[in-house]
């Protein structure tokens, strides 16, 4: 579904992604693991074309997307949930969802307010509240809900467990598994190996903007030097 081929991305002169290649198959939940500063967020942004890779290719559903404007990439079916959440704090929950809403694409599911409220019941109760009145966990749910309204085929989740209460993290894991059951493909970046193991089928480890490992979690457990070397334990 998604193939990244030797992408190199920069912030100004800083070389962040270094010949990074990996792919995500349809229906899978893949976790992108690595320390702070390993390049996880830049990878997400490079896929969304918020950061334009200098070289390399990113193909989504067989189409080259490097150089396309971000909104077009989103329209093709890539849903992005940024790490900083970035909900529209001056808009109500319903309005936030409206911003994310897109018409269904060729016979796919069309998410409605009711459907996302079924997954995130808290949001329904507070649907007319302003975004800034929400707690951190609720904001995190709203970003995911908002992105779902665009009927993504592939969801990019940037550190969804970061900075929210343990109870909510559990809820988040359940949610991701639910989405998987709905047929949504997910690429999730994480520092938390435990969380990744619960939700994901596969682990990709990056460090210094390059891939260090790609395989299942049991394969990862067989290589403790990699696991402990590249992930803070």
């Amino acid at each position: 579904m998604l193939e990244c081929e030797t992408i190199n991305s920069f912030y100004g002169k800083a070389h962040i992604l270094n010949d990074l290649s990996f792919s995500v198959g349809a229906g899978a939940v893949v976790s992108l693991l690595g320390r702070n500063g390993a390049g996880k967020t830049t990878t997400m942004k490079s896929i969304m074309q918020i950061v334009k890779p200098k070289t390399g290719r990113v193909r989504f559903l067989g189409q080259e997307i490097v150089g396309q404007p971000t909104h077009r990439v989103a329209k093709m079916g890539l849903g992005y949930v940024p790490e900083e959440r970035r909900i529209f704090t001056d808009l109500t929950i319903l309005e936030n969802l409206e911003v994310g809403r897109q018409p269904a694409r060729d016979g796919g599911v069309e998410w409605t307010n009711e459907m996302v409220f079924k997954i995130f019941p808290n949001l329904e109760e507070r649907q007319n509240n302003l975004g800034k009145a929400l707690s951190g966990g609720e904001q995190q749910m709203l970003t995911i809900a908002r992105t779902l309204m665009g009927n993504p085929k592939l969801l990019l989740l940037d550190e969804p467990s970061e900075g929210i209460a343990p109870v909510i993290v559990e809820q988040m894991a359940t949610t991701i598994l639910k989405l998987k059951a709905e047929g949504v493909t997910v690429l999730i970046s994480e520092q938390n190996l435990h969380f990744a193991r619960i939700v994901a089928d596969r682990a990709i480890i990056i460090e210094g903007g390059s891939m260090k490992f790609d395989g299942t979690f049991s394969e990862l457990d067989e290589q403790p030097d990699i696991r402990d070397g590249y992930l803070s334990v």
């Binding site: 918020i50 909104h71 989103a74 992005y80 940024p82 970035r86 001056d90 808009l91 911003v99 992105t147």
Partner: peptide, 20 residues
């Protein structure tokens, strides 16, 4: 609604598929 959202964070509006 889109206009108000763009007032606050236009990059995010773009990432949600709106040609801002």
């Amino acid at each position: 609604i889109l206009v108000r959202a763009a007032t606050q964070d236009r990059e995010m509006v773009g990432a949600l598929g709106v040609n801002q």
